Amino acid sequence: MRVVTNLMNVAPEAIADIYKTRWRIETFFRWIKQNLSVPVLFGTTENAVFNQIFAAWIAYVLLKWLYSKTSEGRVFNKLSFITFQRQWLKANLPIDWRIAVVLKTIENYKGYVCLILDNQHS
């Protein structure tokens, strides 16, 4: 591999490390664009970029968690995570998946619902 550079006082190993680091950054941003649905960063400040990436990351983690909880033990109608995500965003999930999402939500928030009902009657 040959690399052309104007950094004459830097060792070749250091230049190779710089390019490896840059390549890791590029692959990280490619993953963000593909998986977090962030094709364009709307802000130009550091805070705006971090807020947009963190919001997308939180949505991704929640969808991944919901997918894993509702797909446990399913033999029929298997969906990939990407298909699940697209169908979720379109509000077009198959009926058995919608039922599983509702049941999982009720199961996870049973204690909270009882607590809220008790507080309303107090």
Rank of each mutant, 00 (worst) to 15 (best):
Y60K: 08
P94M: 02
L63K: 11
F28C: 11
R24A: 02
L117A: 01
A11Q: 05
T105F: 10
T5P: 02
I25G: 02
Q52F: 06
L66M: 15
L103R: 07
L41S: 03
P12K: 14
A11W: 00
V4L: 13
A56F: 11
I15A: 13
N47M: 02
G73V: 14
I25F: 09
R30H: 04
K90N: 12
N47P: 02
Q87G: 03
N77C: 15
Y112L: 15
K104N: 04
A100M: 08
R24I: 06
I32M: 13
A14R: 03
N47S: 10
Y19H: 09
A91C: 01
Q87N: 08
T105A: 05
A59E: 07
F29L: 08
I82M: 03
I116K: 09
Q85V: 01
I53A: 11
N35R: 15
P94V: 14
R22A: 14
N35P: 04
K69V: 07
F42K: 07
Q34R: 14
I106D: 00
D17R: 06
A59F: 00
I106M: 04
L117C: 07
Y109Q: 09
N47G: 03
I116V: 15
K64G: 02
L36P: 05
V113C: 03
Y19L: 11
A48P: 00
I116R: 09
S80L: 05
L62A: 08
Y19A: 07
A16F: 02
L93D: 00
R30E: 13
Y112S: 09
N35Y: 15
R2F: 12
L36S: 12
V10E: 00
V3G: 14
R30Y: 10
V10I: 14
E26T: 05
A91E: 10
R22T: 10
K90F: 11
I99K: 07
R22I: 08
C114L: 15
S71C: 13
N119Q: 15
K64I: 04
G73R: 10
T27A: 02
T45P: 08
H121E: 08
G73Q: 11
Y19T: 08
I95E: 04
I53V: 15
E13L: 06
L79S: 13
F50S: 01
I106L: 04
K104G: 01
K20M: 02
N9L: 08
T83V: 09
V102S: 02
P39F: 01
Q34S: 06
I15N: 03
V61S: 01
I106H: 03
S37W: 11
C114W: 13
